[in-house]
């Protein structure tokens, strides 16, 4: 037997696949598109998702919503932290992918990946705190116990930022699922590979299948059916340009989806809480109290 020199060994290329319902299907369309690096060199073929892939992703996200939104906030925090752990272990892969995708130096790409890992940790810590920050008791003028609590909106379409293929991506996914929503994510059209690889990390991070679904392809094509989909409750338009964003916001009004409009963002900055609260509903529950023994017969 002869051995092959490392320099001459033919590498095994990765077939990038979608991440839907915890599985890694090819696009239902059977089509792919070429993904190149910032200099135009071929990197890989990515699935070209169709309307039907979008539909399947919504079904998966809806199916996962009950369990994920019903999980304890502590549990969701643990899962998000687990994502950070898994990501840390595959740091090298993502640095390479991000560098290729965004044309960054290894050093800058590494900084972006590190920031993305830290972002998962940041949101892991938020899962069991946001309710205390935005919810609370309301002192109504009557014999009632009255409590407002935030609840996840439901299935949220997330158009990942086009420019920041990984840090931006993580920055828009993590807050959506931290609060118990499930997500259909449309990856950066030009640089989808880090997003597709993230699917592999999520699949091994105790995240239930369907909580995050990742589609690659033409953003406008995939987003259109998602914006009109009656079983989608919210849409984050970060990855849409001005014209597309307006179009999608109009479509989203059909069932009054909650819309997060795009705005210029420095992904390395303090994320704040607005991405957490954008897809939260406030539920207020009333219950009579009465007073113990006050009138001799009061409860």
């Amino acid at each position: 037997m002869s051995t092959v020199d490392a320099t001459t060994r033919l590498s095994v290329l990765k077939t990038y696949k979608l991440y839907v319902g915890g599985k890694f299907p090819r696009s239902e369309s059977g089509r792919v598109y070429e993904v190149t690096d910032s200099k135009g060199a071929w990197l890989a073929n990515a699935p070209l998702s169709s309307r039907k892939d979008a539909r399947d992703a919504v079904v998966a996200a809806r199916k996962a919503f009950g369990g994920w939104s019903g999980a304890t906030a502590y549990n969701r925090g643990q899962v998000l932290y687990r994502v950070a752990e898994m990501l840390e272990g595959r740091r090298g892969q993502f640095v390479r992918e991000v560098a290729d995708a965004e044309g960054l130096s290894k050093q800058k790409a590494a900084a972006a990946v590190d920031a993305a890992v830290d972002r998962w940790v940041w949101y892991a810590g938020w899962t069991d705190k946001i309710a205390q920050v935005v919810g609370g008791a309301n002192p109504v003028a009557g014999p009632f116990f009255n409590l407002s609590t935030p609840e996840p909106t439901g299935v949220v379409t997330v158009l990942a930022p086009q420019d920041s293929s990984f840090l931006g991506l993580v920055s828009v996914i993590a807050p959506v699922i931290a609060t118990g929503n499930t997500a259909v994510v449309v990856a950066s059209e030009r640089s989808p590979l880090p997003a597709l690889s993230l699917g592999e990390v999520l699949a091994t991070s105790d995240l239930p299948g369907g909580v995050v679904n990742v589609l690659s392809g033409r953003t406008a094509e995939i987003a259109a059916p998602l914006a009109t989909h009656q079983d989608v409750n919210g849409i984050d338009l970060t990855g849409a340009d001005e014209v597309l964003a307006k179009e999608l916001e109009i479509a989203a009004a059909d069932n009054l989806k909650r819309v997060l409009r795009p705005r210029a963002t420095d992904w390395t900055g303090d994320p704040g809480t607005h991405r957490l609260t954008a897809f939260l509903e406030t539920k207020t529950v009333w219950h009579p109290t009465g007073a113990v023994g006050a009138s001799g017969s009061s409860y």
Binding site: N138, F144, S148, W286, H287
Partner: peptide, 24 residues
């Protein structure tokens, strides 16, 4: 899936109590 839930009461309102809907 509702913004206001009244348990053992109904149609109570108060300025301190947030009011508004889910879905459509």
């Amino acid at each position: 899936r509702a913004g206001v839930v009244w348990a053992n009461t109904f149609n109570k309102f108060d300025p301190t109590s947030p009011f508004g809907g889910y879905k459509e």
